[in-house]
Nucleic acid binder design. Structure first.
Length: 864
RNA sequence: GGGCGCGUAGCUCAGUGGGAGAGCGCUCGCUUCACACGCGAGAGGUCGCAGGUUCGAAACCCGCCGCGCCCACCA
C-alpha cells in the first residue's frame, strides 16, 4: 500500500468521491497538476543504479506529428511510468530534430530567403513580413537563426500534444539537434574521429542527388519502381559487332569497357580485343568479370562512369579509366573530344553526336541518343518497355546518380565485425529485430559518407589554407580548439588569420559542407546526457538503459548510434532497444499523407480521450505493425469509465475494513490478484507492455462482473467480520488495480487515486504480491480458489436462467440446486451463504469431475 | 534472389504439446440500489494448404501458397 504522506497533497488532490464521475477535463487538470507538482522531474542526485535513462527519439519538427508518433511514444511512456513506479529515477528528456532538409525547405518558403555561405553574417537581419518574389541571400548563421525561430513554434505545438497525451517527460530537459550544445558535441566528436583518422576526406564516386545537389548516404536510399526501356545497341569491332542491352543509352559516351562472364563461350572470341562505341567511336576493351550474369541480355554488359554501384565496383577492380559525362546538376557536361581520355576514331562525328546531348538532362539526352542510334543503325529493334527498380534519395524526385566529388567519410567497413558483436550484446525487444541490424551491417558496401552540400545542418569545423598560388590545401585542414566550439567556418575565422584573408592566396577558406543529419542524430545519447558540457550528468545516464524507436530506422538511427558510441566510448550506447511497429490503415498499408487517411493526433485525443488513445497504442505489441482502429479506442474509453465507476462503488459508503481479510472468497480474490501482479510485472520487465495490460484488464473485468457482485451482498453484513473482510479486500484490490493500470490510463488512474490517497499514483510504489502476503498466510489456498470458481460459475448459471426466462436480474430466486463433484461441492459449502441468492440452495454430489449442473427455480410473481 | 515477420470467428488479435479463446460487430433479453460511456445471455471457426514427428498438433519439423517489411551486383 502507498504510505500516507502528511500534507503532501496540493489543492489538485481532492479527497472526495464525486457524485457523477466523468472523464471530461481530466487531461487538462492532471497535466497541469503534474507540471506544478514536478511529478516527472528527474532527480540527478540519484545513484546510477537507481537511474533509468531513455534515449528518446527526437521527432522531426518541420512536419507534423502523426498517429504513428502517438503510437510509439506511448510505448516508451508505458515503460517510463512502470520503471518510475518501480522506484527508478527516470531520465526521460525530449528532443527536437530540427536539423536537416525538411526544415531548410520550410524556412526558404516561409521567409523567402536562401542560404549563401559566402554572405557575411548580419546580426541585425530581419526578414520581410511577406516573403519576396526573389529569395534574399543570407549567411549561414542568419539562416540557422531563422530555422530556430520557425522550429520554436512547431516545438511548442508538439509539446502541447505530448502533454495532452500524458507523456511523463521532464520538460525541463529538452534539446534540439541544431542547438548550440548539439553542434558543439557533434563537432567535437567529429574532430576526435578526425584526430584518430577514423573520419577522412577523399575524392571518390559518391551517391548524388541531382535536385538537391548533394551527396547522400546508402542508408538514405530507397527503391522505386519506374518504367524504363531496354535498348539493344551494337558496338563496332574488327569483324565482330557485339550487342549489348542497356536501360541507360545516354551513358554510351561514358562507356569504358564491355564485360562478359569469364566462362561465357559466346563472347570468348572477342575477350581481350577492343571495340568502338557507336556514335562516338571510342575504343573500349572487352574484359571479363565474375559478377557478369550470363543470362541477362546478351551476356555482355557496358561499364560506364557511372551507371550504378556495380559500375563503380568494376571500375575499381579492373582499374578502368573514367569518362564522366554527368554534371552535378543532372545535365550532361561539355566534353573535350580529342583530348586524352576522349579519343575517337572520328572526332568530328563524336563532337557532332555529343553536341546533341551536352547541356541536356538525363531524360532529354536519353531520348535524343535513341534517335541518333536509330539513325545510325546501331539501335537493333525497338526498345522494350521494362519495369525496373531505381534507387532514389528518400526525399528526392529523380534517381540518384553517381558523381565523383570530395566528401567526408567515417570508416565503417573495418568495424563491421565489431558492430555485429555490439548488436549481439544489445537486448532487442522483440528479439527478432536484431536480424534487420545484422542484415544491414552485412550488406554495407562502403564507408559512411557524412558530408552534405546543404546549409542547415552542423558545419564541419574545418578550414583549409590557401597557398600563395591560390590553391586550396585540402590535405592540411585547420581545426578549432575545443573551447571555440561550436564554430561555423563560413563566418568564424581560424586562429592566426583575419577575416580579410578569407579566400585569398596565403589565406584560408572554410569547409562549405554540413554534416548528414544522422551524423548528429547518432549522438542523441551524448547530446541528451550533455557529454563534456555536464560530465556529472553524463556519467549518471550513459550508457542509457533504453533506445525506443520504430523498425524502419534501424539501418539509420540505431545503426549509426551504435557506431558512434562504439568508436567514441568503446561500448554500447544503451542496453535495451525496444522496437515499435508502424500504424497501418485498414488496407494494411503504412499510413501516409499521400493516402489521404492521416488523422491528426490532437483530434484523436479530443474525440476519444488520451487514456483511450493510449489504450489503443498499448494494444500494439512491441515490433508489431498495428491497424489504426478507433474501435479499440472506444474500448479503452470504456475501461477508463469502468475504472471511475468501480472506484466509486468501492470507496463510497465503505464499511470499516478489518485488520485482515478472513473469508474464503476474499482471500481467493487476493490470491488471484497476486498472480496478476506477478504476471504484469514480469511482462513489463520484458518490455511486453501489451501482455501486462491484457492480464490486468482481463482480471479487472472479471473482478467487476463477478467479485463486485459477490461483494454487494456481503459488504453490509451484520457480522462485522464479514463486512470487514470484504471492505479490506475491496480497498486492497482497488489500490492494486489503480496502480497496475496507471501506466496505461494515467489520467483516470490519477483521478481515482486522488479520491482517497495522498500524492500522485505515478510516484506510488508499483504493486507487489508481497503486499498481500499477510492477508493470504495460512488457510487452504486451493480450496478457497475453488470456492471462488464455483461461486462465480453458479452466479453465471443464475443469470443465465434469468436471461433465458426474460426476467430482470433482480427477479427473486426460489431455489437453486447445484450438482457437482464432491471436491467442488465441498468448496462451495464454504461460500454458499455468501452467494445471497435470496432463495434456498441445495448442494448435491455428482459422480464425475464434469458433473457440474445447476438447476434454478425463479420465484413467481412481480419482479419488484 | 536472400533475410525477417505474419496467416486462428465477419473485424482486430491472444493462445507454442492434451478442453479452440477474448474484445468488437451480430442476435435476444434487462432501467440491476458503481456504471445505459451500462448489465446479462447467445449464435458464430475444416486454426492458409499438404506431408511428417507424436498416444495426442492450432502449436514442433519439412515443403508449398498468400500477405507485409527489409536487403540485393535491378546491365
Amino acid at each position: 500500500m502507498s504510505e500516507k504522506e502528511d500534507a503532501a497533497a496540493g489543492p489538485a488532490w481532492s479527497t472526495r468521491v464525486p457524485e457523477r464521475p466523468t472523464l471530461d477535463g481530466l487531461e487538462e487538470r492532471w497535466a497541469s497538476a503534474w507540471e506544478s507538482e514536478g511529478v516527472y522531474r528527474f532527480d540527478r542526485s540519484a545513484p546510477r543504479e537507481r537511474i533509468y535513462s531513455i534515449d528518446t527519439p527526437p521527432p522531426t519538427v518541420s512536419g507534423s506529428l502523426h498517429v504513428g508518433h502517438v503510437f510509439s511514444f506511448t510505448h516508451t511512456d508505458l515503460v517510463a511510468r512502470y520503471r518510475r513506479m518501480r522506484g527508478m529515477e527516470v531520465f526521460y528528456p525530449m528532443g527536437w530534430d530540427d536539423n536537416g532538409l525538411p526544415t531548410e525547405r520550410r524556412v526558404q518558403n516561409h521567409f523567402g530567403v536562401r542560404c549563401d555561405p559566402t554572405v557575411a553574417y548580419d546580426a541585425a537581419f530581419e526578414p520581410p513580413a511577406e516573403p519576396p518574389e526573389e529569395p534574399i541571400a543570407v549567411s549561414r548563421p542568419n539562416f540557422v537563426e531563422l530555422c530556430l525561430r520557425l522550429t520554436q513554434t512547431d516545438e511548442r505545438a508538439f509539446e502541447e500534444l505530448w502533454r495532452r497525451l500524458g507523456l511523463s517527460v521532464d520538460w525541463g530537459m529538452t534539446y534540439a539537434t541544431i542547438g548550440d550544445d548539439a553542434r558543439r558535441i557533434s563537432q567535437r566528436s567529429f574532430l576526435g574521429l578526425l584526430g584518430r583518422a577514423i573520419a577522412y576526406q577523399v575524392e571518390a564516386p559518391t551517391l548524388w542527388d541531382v535536385d538537391f545537389q548533394t551527396a547522400v548516404a546508402q542508408a538514405e536510399l530507397e527503391d522505386r519502381e519506374r518504367p524504363g526501356a531496354m535498348h539493344r545497341v551494337r558496338f563496332h569491332g574488327e569483324g565482330a559487332q557485339p550487342l549489348i542491352e542497356t536501360t541507360r543509352p545516354e551513358l554510351i559516351p561514358a562507356c569504358v569497357a564491355l564485360l562478359a562472364h569469364p566462362d561465357d563461350a559466346r563472347h570468348a572470341a572477342i575477350v581481350g580485343s577492343e571495340v568502338r562505341t557507336p556514335l562516338f567511336g571510342t575504343a573500349v576493351p572487352v574484359l571479363t568479370h565474375e559478377l557478369v550474369e550470363r543470362d541477362k541480355g546478351t551476356g555482355l554488359v557496358m561499364v560506364c562512369t557511372f551507371g550504378d554501384l556495380t559500375d563503380v565496383t568494376w571500375w575499381r577492380e579492373l582499374s578502368l579509366p573514367v569518362r564522366p559525362v554527368l554534371g552535378v546538376d543532372g545535365r550532361l557536361v561539355p566534353i573535350p573530344w580529342g583530348e586524352p581520355g576522349w579519343e575517337s576514331a572520328d572526332i568530328d562525328a563524336a563532337r557532332a553526336a555529343y553536341g546533341e546531348l551536352a547541356g541536356r538532362t538525363i531524360n532529354q539526352a536519353r531520348r535524343r541518343i535513341v534517335e541518333l542510334l536509330a539513325e545510325s543503325g546501331d539501335l537493333i529493334g525497338e526498345p522494350q518497355e521494362v519495369k525496373r527498380a531505381v534507387k532514389f534519395y528518400e526525399r528526392g524526385e529523380r534517381p540518384v546518380e553517381i558523381v565523383t566529388s570530395r566528401q567526408w567519410f567515417i570508416r565503417t567497413m573495418e568495424h563491421r565485425d565489431a558492430l555485429i558483436a555490439r548488436g549481439r550484446e544489445l537486448k532487442w525487444h522483440p528479439a527478432y529485430m536484431r536480424a534487420r541490424f545484422e542484415d544491414w551491417v552485412n550488406g554495407l558496401t562502403g564507408d559512411w559518407c557524412i558530408s552534405r552540400q546543404r546549409f542547415f545542418g552542423v558545419p564541419f569545423p574545418i578550414w583549409y589554407p590557401v597557398d600563395a598560388g591560390g590553391v586550396v590545401q585540402y590535405d592540411a585542414p585547420i581545426t578549432p580548439r575545443e573551447e571555440q566550439l561550436p564554430v561555423d567556418p563560413s563566418t568564424d575565422v581560424p586562429d592566426g588569420f583575419q577575416e580579410s584573408q578569407r579566400g585569398t592566396p596565403g589565406g584560408f577558406i572554410g569547409d562549405p559542407d554540413v554534416m548528414d543529419t544522422w551524423a548528429t542524430s547518432s549522438l542523441t545519447p551524448q547530446i541528451a546526457g550533455r557529454e563534456w558540457i555536464d560530465d556529472e550528468l553524463f556519467r549518471a545516464v550513459f550508457p542509457m538503459d533504453l533506445r525506443p524507436q520504430a523498425h524502419d530506422i534501424i539501418r539509420t538511427w540505431l545503426f549509426t548510434t551504435i557506431l558512434r558510441s562504439h568508436l567514441d566510448h568503446d561500448e554500447l550506447p544503451w542496453s535495451n532497444a525496444a522496437i515499435s511497429g508502424w500504424i497501418l490503415d485498414p488496407d494494411r498499408k503504412k499510413m501516409s499523407k499521400s493516402k489521404g487517411n492521416v488523422v491528426t493526433p490532437m483530434h484523436l485525443l479530443e474525440e476519444h480521450g488520451s487514456d483511450a488513445v493510449r489504450y489503443w497504442a498499448a494494444s500494439g505489441r512491441p515490433g508489431a505493425d498495428t491497424a489504426f482502429d478507433p474501435q479499440q479506442m472506444r474500448i479503452g474509453r470504456r475501461l477508463a469509465v469502468k475504472v471511475l465507476n468501480a472506484s466509486k462503488f468501492v470507496l463510497q459508503d465503505s464499511p470499516t475494513p478489518a485488520a485482515r481479510v478472513s473469508h474464503p472468497l476474499d482471500r481467493a480474490l487476493l490470491a488471484r490478484l497476486a498472480d496478476v501482479i506477478r504476471a504484469a510485472s514480469e511482462s513489463f520487465d520484458a518490455y511486453d507492455y501489451t501482455r501486462a495490460l491484457e492480464r490486468t484488464e482481463e482480471f479487472f473485468w472479471w473482478y467487476c462482473d463477478n467479485y463486485l457482485e459477490l461483494a454487494k451482498g456481503r459488504r453490509y453484513d451484520s457480522d462485522p467480520e464479514v463486512s470487514g473482510s470484504v471492505a479490506r479486500a475491496l480497498t486492497l484490490s482497488l489500490s492494486v488495480f489503480q496502480r497496475l493500470l496507471a501506466p496505461f490510463l494515467p489520467f483516470v488512474c490519477e483521478e481515482v487515486w486522488s479520491w482517497w490517497q495522498q500524492g500522485s499514483v505515478h510516484r506510488a510504489a508499483w504493486p507487489q504480491a508481497r503486499e498481500l502476503e499477510r492477508d493470504l498466510s495460512g488457510g487452504d489456498g486451493e480450496l478457497e480458489a475453488r470456492a471462488l470458481d464455483v461461486a462465480a460459475a453458479v452466479l453465471h448459471e443464475v443469470r443465465k436462467a434469468k436471461s433465458d426466462a426474460r426476467r430482470p436480474m433482480r427477479a427473486p430466486v426460489a431455489r437453486v440446486v447445484v450438482r457437482d463433484s464432491a471436491e467442488r461441492v465441498g468448496a462451495l459449502e464454504l461460500a454458499a451463504g455468501d452467494l445471497r441468492l435470496a432463495g434456498a440452495i441445495e448442494l448435491l454430489e455428482g459422480e464425475a469431475a464434469d458433473a457440474f449442473a445447476v438447476a434454478v427455480e425463479l420465484a413467481d410473481g412481480a419482479d419488484d
